[in-house]
């Protein structure tokens, strides 16, 4: 069989890739321009090395603080998801108890419900607890998820039955089986769920925008939105903020892309 030519694919993919990254390059360029430079006709495609846009952003919104908030929330949500989802997923996949099927169906049903349905009552719960404008308001609802439970259950189901039986004969209780035997074996699933959770938690906007109105307690996504409110269409400043806010997740992705993509592909095949 002759080797197929690959250059037509390269031509199309390269053109597409340019469309994909041009906005990012453009964002960095404009973040280094002055306001009048950003309002030229035709557009100025080179930076004017206006570094002061970056300190200006940090002066206008507590960006450093919001960065720390975002990291704390993301870490806590991800750790919580991994622990709680894997516990529940293990129980659903490997243990038998009355009502297992029915409870699992309730979990699944929640995957169908749009997130907006939860927002108002959750807001009222947070208000009642006096948790508005706190980080735990962002963390608490985020650590629970039907999706993660479902995803990890699929991983636990693929493990051979003999594993638990052997361990049980050795006198291990289910907690020990879960923690010492099963969890290490579903590491690819944990990694996939972890990366997906990081990505979602880092970017989420609507809930943080609603519960935390104090700039000191905002995450970067909401911070960017409030920067927009302050600077309207002063794009050099807005882009300086955007660059700072999106860089960490892009960096994480470049390092972990294989695992993240494997995780997403998995949700496609098992979902």
């Amino acid at each position: 069989m002759s080797r197929p030519r690959t250059w037509p694919a390269h031509v199309i993919l390269t053109a597409g890739a340019l469309v994909m990254i041009a906005p990012f390059v453009w964002q960095v360029v404009v973040s280094l321009q002055t306001l009048p430079d950003s309002l030229r006709v035709p557009p100025k495609f080179t930076p004017s090395w206006e570094w002061s846009n970056f300190p200006e952003v940090f002066r206008s919104v507590p960006l450093a603080r919001q960065f720390v908030n975002t990291v704390l929330v993301t870490v806590a949500v991800t750790a919580g998801q991994l622990l709680l989802c894997s516990m529940a997923a293990f129980a659903f996949a490997r243990l038998r108890f009355p009502g297992r099927g029915a409870i699992f169906m309730v979990f699944l049903a929640m995957l169908m419900v749009p997130g907006e349905l939860f927002i108002i009552p959750r807001y009222e719960i947070m208000q009642g607890l006096g948790w508005l404008n706190t980080l735990q308001a962002l963390i608490a609802p985020g650590v629970f998820g039907a999706f993660g439970t479902f995803l990890l259950r699929q991983f636990f189901l693929t493990l051979p039955k003999e594993l638990d039986e052997a361990a049980r004969l050795d006198g291990a209780n289910p907690l020990q089986i879960y923690w010492h035997i099963m969890l290490p074996l579903v590491r690819p699933g944990l990694l996939a769920l972890g990366l997906l959770t990081v990505m979602w938690s880092w970017s989420s906007l609507l809930w943080p925008l609603i519960v935390n109105t104090d700039p000191e307690m905002m995450t970067l996504s909401a911070g960017l939105a409030s920067l927009r409110g302050q600077f309207q269409t002063n794009f050099p400043i807005l882009f300086a903020g955007s660059v700072v806010a999106s860089l960490p997740v892009i960096a994480l992705f470049v390092f972990m892309q294989r695992q993240l993509i494997a995780g997403i592909a998995f949700t496609g095949s098992k979902g």
């Binding site: 890739a17 994909m20 970017s203 906007l205 996504s221 806010a245 992705f253």
Partner: peptide, 12 residues
């Protein structure tokens, strides 16, 4: 490269 927009926050 195609995946970059997926991991960038929608706000940005």
């Amino acid at each position: 490269l195609y995946f970059l927009p997926v991991v960038t926050m929608p706000a940005a």
